[in-house]
Simulated assay, not measured.
Amino acid sequence: MAVTQRIPVPVWNRWPTWTAYAALLWSVIYAVLGISWALGGGGFPFGANDINAEGQGELLAEATAPVAGSITAALGAAGVVTAGAMARRARGPRAMLLGFGWSVAALLVLVLPEVRALNIALFPLIFLTLDKMDWPTMNFLILMVGGIFWAGATLAYQRASRSACANCGRVATDRTGRAEAWLLRWGRVITYVAIAAPWGYAVVRLAWALDIPAGVSTEFLRRMESANDGAGAKGMELVLAGMCAGGSLLTVGLIQRWGEIWPRWLVGLAGRPVPSAFPVTFASLAAVGVTAVGLSWARGLPGLIANGFSGDIEGYPVGPLFYLPIPAFLIWGVALGLATLAYYYRRRDDCVHCRRGEAVGVASPVRSRP
């Protein structure tokens, strides 16, 4: 009798299974915490207990433990039931499970996190300092991790519940979905948008580093320099502008050969295929973080529009250019997410789980070369 050799699958590739249980465990923990906060227990991270919320924690600045704790407990309990149903691949109610899962994922990753936590997530080498890592900030980071668990669990359930492979999303008929075909057609254009968008932030920061008052007054720049020891403020602006410029450059790899084949100057890797999971994972996380920052900044957008994109910061007048990073980050995040998805669709190989091949019949330009 022939024996079929089972190919070991890394834990990372089993994410459709363990993300549901991770979301369930996360929900249990926050259900318990919510009950504790509602009953007067310590550690409530919002409202008056968040001493660093001024200027960057407006969304939950008025939250109280009895109300927010009760809501947290209710959402946690509903999450336990929903994640359990997703783990069992329950057939219904599918729309309700998907609606809850995606809503919770968006709430935890894109809506609730404040700017200070998002800064640490995106720029850890700059903003990760001990004085900023208080419990409320750590809680926001934990919320984001829970949101990622929920996104993975919901995506896997969405695929499995329509008889598609939970890992790659392909169906048995190998027919190209409309969204996939659209991304393969417009992916390059969308990637160009993702390449250009971060410069809306980088140019403003670079101007400030060069003492050009873009969108602000000269007095505002002097105030920033005196508060950050002059050279320190300029150095920070240059680093932030450089990181956005670096993100723009790396995005180019999503449509260039060196984004699929390691370049010659990388000794030991030159000429080898770039594992698609590498750029997809990091670009996806960057897209989520950038979008969350843009949404956090955009909470005051209705008021800005009413005031003609003018206002004041600590008594100093600011103009429209000061607010340019808000639409720049929103466009950057969405475009980068779509560009990454187009890159994934273009490069994905046969699935090791369902053994289904290319669903679109379009080979990567790089891999088709001799």
Rank of each mutant, 00 (worst) to 15 (best):
C351S: 11
G294H: 09
N49I: 02
G177K: 09
A105F: 12
I212L: 09
I126H: 06
F127A: 01
F46Q: 14
L112M: 14
V115F: 05
F46D: 09
W26S: 06
E114Q: 12
I71H: 07
M138C: 10
Q56W: 01
R347A: 05
W182C: 14
L184G: 15
V171K: 15
S163R: 09
A95R: 06
R91D: 01
A38I: 09
I313T: 13
V290L: 13
G146R: 00
F329D: 15
W262E: 00
A22V: 10
A73R: 01
S276P: 13
N228A: 09
W26C: 06
I71W: 10
P16Y: 01
C165V: 04
M96K: 04
R222S: 13
V171F: 12
R159V: 12
P213Q: 00
G147M: 05
V366N: 03
K234F: 08
G308P: 05
G235N: 14
A270H: 10
N307C: 12
E225V: 04
V189E: 10
K234V: 15
A153R: 12
F140P: 03
A38Q: 10
I313Q: 14
L97T: 11
T291R: 03
P279T: 08
S27I: 04
N119L: 11
L59W: 06
G247H: 00
A156E: 03
V28K: 00
A77N: 01
C165K: 14
P213W: 00
E260P: 06
V252K: 01
D350F: 13
L336Y: 06
L122M: 12
A117I: 10
C244V: 06
A53T: 04
Q5W: 00
A363R: 09
G361H: 11
N307G: 14
A339L: 01
P273T: 08
C168L: 15
V274C: 11
R346H: 00
G259R: 05
G242F: 01
A160T: 05
F220T: 02
I35W: 04
L184A: 09
W208G: 03
E219W: 02
D350R: 15
P273M: 01
W26G: 11
T64G: 13
I313R: 03
G268R: 08
A87G: 15
S284R: 07
V203A: 07
L128Y: 09
R88H: 04
M96F: 07
V9I: 14
R162H: 12
S276V: 15
W12T: 15
N52Y: 14
G42S: 12
G101V: 05
L321Y: 09
F220W: 12
G361P: 04
S103Y: 07
V216K: 02
L143R: 14
R91C: 00
A231V: 15
S226W: 02
V239F: 05
P302E: 00
L39S: 13
W37Y: 11
